[in-house]
Design a protein around this nucleic acid. Structure first.
Lengths: 165, 165
DNA sequence: AGACGACTGTAACACTATAACAGAACGGAG
DNA sequence: CTCCGTTCTGTTATAGTGTTACAGTCGTCT
């Protein structure tokens, strides 16, 4: 697998993480400037914490970090910041894990599918368009109108497969 | 939409529910006979409770029912019965809802996609084969080997759409 | 300065899930 | 039938996840 810093499944290939993380932060700032959201200190710090790894973090894990840095130490502090990020497309919530992960491609209006490595807990986003189309077809056969779709796959990433071989 | 008791999205069409529920119960009994699982009283009752509606139920909702009927009243009672049903393909767990729903097509070895009506909370299972194939393609592009996939769509079912019109 | 809205923090609580252990029920070997 | 190992049921206690309600703070606009 070649280096491919910004592409599909980038999280599962070696890459310059400080680059992808600072880029996401810049994208976020721009995006909010046009949309009107305020990236306050807690919110910004929450995003940075999520961006430090390609993992999903539980709200309480984020909260511990925030509290250690002088922010509030009650659950709503983390939940509110995370909710803000999710609403503005800067982070995603992973249902299978009760956890949150930074969005690596903010700006693209998207609703990605997630690949979750069960060995190293890393997360990757991949486009879900084809799947949403396929689901829309079956759903409309049942008279169901789809609003939001969650697609989350658990499996083994390239790095862990390699390590095991 | 015609009557189509056992087909795709059956939950969203009028149908003879006592039929589809008793059939699922029979399927379950047969399936366990060949597989070696024991459908004990708590487990059987748990399945019946799930089958009473085409909704997903929280573990504690199930637990209340069980307790009222003389079974244990502590969480593990419900969680163990539900886990057993899920492991044997007789029920599904819905990540978006932290809840469980009876499987209406046991026997078919499947991993369906779910349609969840946000107005009436009814659930339907639809085949997820096409979606899993599509996801497998993108995933392998990232060197990721998919094990299990969760596909859950939130939207509006035929019955509620009709009622609103 | 005053007023308003948005943001941050706290306490208290509700819901979801698991660990650890004791006794009861079942099934096979003798 | 009895003994024994296994599986199942139930309990207490505790961990983890998420929300409600309310008070104070900060920015901004007149």
């Amino acid at each position: 697998m070649p280096e491919n810093p910004d592409g599909i499944g980038a999280a599962f290939a070696p890459h310059d993480h400080s680059h992808c993380s600072s880029r996401a932060l810049n994208d976020a700032t721009e995006r909010l400037a046009t949309e009107g959201g305020r990236l306050t200190p807690v919110r910004r710090r929450t995003l940075e914490i999520l961006l430090e790894s390609h993992r999903a973090m539980g709200a309480y894990e984020v909260l511990d970090r925030l509290a250690a840095e002088g922010f509030g130490r009650q659950p709503p502090v983390a939940y509110r910041a995370l909710e803000f990020l999710v609403q503005h497309g800067l982070a995603h919530r992973l249902q299978r894990l009760n956890a949150f992960a930074a969005c690596l491609h903010p700006g693209a209006d998207h609703q990605p599918a997630f690949l979750i490595c069960s060995e190293c807990d890393r997360i990757a986003e991949v486009p879900s368009g084809p799947m949403r189309d396929a689901l829309g077809d079956v759903a409309s056969g049942a008279g169901f109108v789809v609003d939001r779709v969650t697609v989350e796959a658990v499996g083994t990433c390239a790095i862990c497969a390699e390590a095991r071989a």
